[in-house]
Design a protein around this nucleic acid. Sequence first.
DNA 1: ATTTTATATAAACATATGGTTATATACTAA
DNA 2: TTAGTATATAACCATATGTTTATATAAAAT
Lengths: 106, 106
Amino acid sequence: MELDQLTECYKAMADKTRLNILALLRHEELCVCELVDILKMTQPSISQHLRKLKQAKLVKERRNSQWIFYSIDGEIYPFIKANLEALPDMSAKIEELKASGGKVCC
Amino acid sequence: MELDQLTECYKAMADKTRLNILALLRHEELCVCELVDILKMTQPSISQHLRKLKQAKLVKERRNSQWIFYSIDGEIYPFIKANLEALPDMSAKIEELKASGGKVCC
DNA sequence: ATTTTATATAAACATATGGTTATATACTAA
DNA sequence: TTAGTATATAACCATATGTTTATATAAAAT
């Protein structure tokens, strides 16, 4: 692949918050406010991280009325599956969110 | 894996020069001055990039008298092979180096 | 229409990063 | 021991990055 595209990919992954987001999206698509809830960060911060991931084509978005749901993309990267598999399991965080009634949305 | 370890790995890969170094080392181990030659960058700059790669355990070093040869490591990362395979082929650069008599060393 | 909710963008700031120049260290050769 | 070669480290600087606060946009509900 092109080095510039690869650099953008790894830059996008070179941040703990963004790896957390990817790890969460592995389980299911989530909207911004759910990520804010789970990661306990401000909404603009999450939005900007999502923008980087989207620019690197690691996530895609889908609008559903007032919410925008993000999900894993990365299909342009032949290696992405292997990388995502190395991310820690975050299902507990997702369960927490659902238990606290924070799911669908918000 | 641990998110901190993964973050360090992707940070190390999030730079064009370092991806170039990894792409070159895929072919064979190289010493610092050979990398300086091929990448046409200053020696301190290359050294500092190598340090980052080494800290992330993506490369390892082997001393041979006055030279230090770097080679691919990354064995702590289950995905690293897939990632290295996506790097562009740099064999032409290596051939150039050998043709110009710059090999073994320096 | 106006208000509320969800998200994005902008401006400002502190910290991180990469490059350069200068210097230190490690080994070799004389 | 001294000089030369290979590499590492340090100090400095410019640019990039991530966070915060404030504001803008878009859709929903009233």
